[in-house]
Simulated scan of single mutants.
Amino acid sequence: MEVIIVCFLLFTLEKLPLPLEGVVLALFSLVCVYGAAASLANPMFGKQLIPLGDPFLKTKAPGENEKNNENSSPCLTTSSRLTSGLRTIAKMLDSGRVCGIPTDTVYALAASCQHPEAVKMIYNIKERPAEKPICICISSLDQLTAVHPPFCPLLWEFMNQVYPGSISCIVKKGEWLKKLGVGAVYDYVGTKDSIMIRVPDHTVTAHLVNMTGPLAITSANPSGEPDSIHHDMVILRLGHKIDGVLCDGSSNEVVASTVINCTKIDEEGITILREGCVPVVRVLEVFKQVKSKFV
């Protein structure tokens, strides 16, 4: 190819002897035929039957940027689309580490309810004020019914309507939490008398919690800053402080869940403490419909 290029330059400058023009054209034709044959045969048979050199221009394969980001990430990252990725994060959580996980709203920091020290680490990682409680996440309402908490029929019916979903219900604490698997961190989640429960409508989160048991979770962002709506945001902002991130791309929502105080639902109804991705109007409509069944 170098000879051909030099000859073309000489031809352009009208310095190439006439007899050599035919030779150059013949060589160029052979190179073109060779390249065409290689470009057809090699992809057809899936291997390099006809040798070719390195490409002059290189483009990155799809997903190569993600792989490079994973390799350079300050923490371990795995894909939510892989069973091995879920197992890796589950093992990390079971061993007392803190990881970023996707939910049906925004990304969250998670710690196993079997490791109080991991829950306390979340406060340090987020620089979260101690007076702000952390909630627990379960995979389904069936986990809750299995331990028979002393909830009134109105509360049970309300939770049946809103779970799974982007709503967090605050209920009264009790010994039933220990049967649920929260005994080890009983004093580190919720307040002295109440606990907030999340049942995300998210397949990945549900599978993960089924593998680990209840998780203590809170939004994966430094305290006071906007929520993380992509795993890259979690890695960038908190990757140097946490142990792993379960990567699931963009989150389903741009704000966190709607928080409802249900501790006095039978006597005074519900109280909206924070409007999130579920509008207050929608929550009140659901409660009105539920309550009408008990009048």
Rank of each mutant, 00 (worst) to 15 (best):
M44T: 05
L141R: 08
A184V: 01
T203V: 09
K291A: 14
E70L: 06
T203C: 05
G100H: 04
T105K: 03
C152V: 07
T218H: 07
V245M: 06
A206G: 10
E131S: 13
S292Q: 14
L215S: 03
I122W: 01
T105H: 06
G181V: 01
V255R: 12
I122D: 00
P222T: 04
V283T: 12
P102G: 05
A110R: 01
G53E: 12
L180D: 00
D232R: 11
W156K: 15
S29W: 02
T218V: 07
T12H: 06
S140R: 11
L27D: 02
G100N: 04
V6K: 15
E131M: 10
N68Q: 13
T83P: 07
V147N: 07
I272W: 03
C247I: 06
V254H: 11
K288S: 15
D248W: 00
L86G: 00
M121R: 15
V31T: 11
A206H: 14
S228Q: 11
C32M: 09
S72Q: 12
P226S: 10
I195M: 01
L30E: 08
V185G: 02
V280D: 06
S292L: 09
N160F: 09
C152W: 05
G269W: 02
F45R: 06
A36S: 14
L27I: 08
I50L: 14
L208N: 04
Y188E: 07
L284T: 12
S84A: 12
S95N: 10
T103R: 04
A90R: 00
S292I: 08
I89D: 02
E267A: 11
L9A: 15
K179S: 15
I4C: 05
T263D: 11
G100L: 04
A256C: 09
E64V: 12
C277Q: 11
G100R: 01
L144N: 01
A90H: 00
V162L: 04
V182S: 01
P222Y: 02
H148C: 12
K60V: 14
V281Y: 07
Q114T: 13
P55V: 05
F56H: 06
T103W: 05
L93R: 00
S79L: 06
V199F: 04
G165E: 03
A220P: 02
L20D: 13
C32N: 05
V3R: 15
I170Q: 00
E131T: 11
E157Q: 13
V106E: 02
P133M: 04
K178R: 13
C152N: 11
L30D: 07
C169P: 01
S194T: 14
N252K: 11
M233D: 09
K288V: 13
V31P: 10
L236Y: 07
K47T: 04
L177S: 05
N42E: 06
I136Q: 02
R97C: 07
I4Q: 05
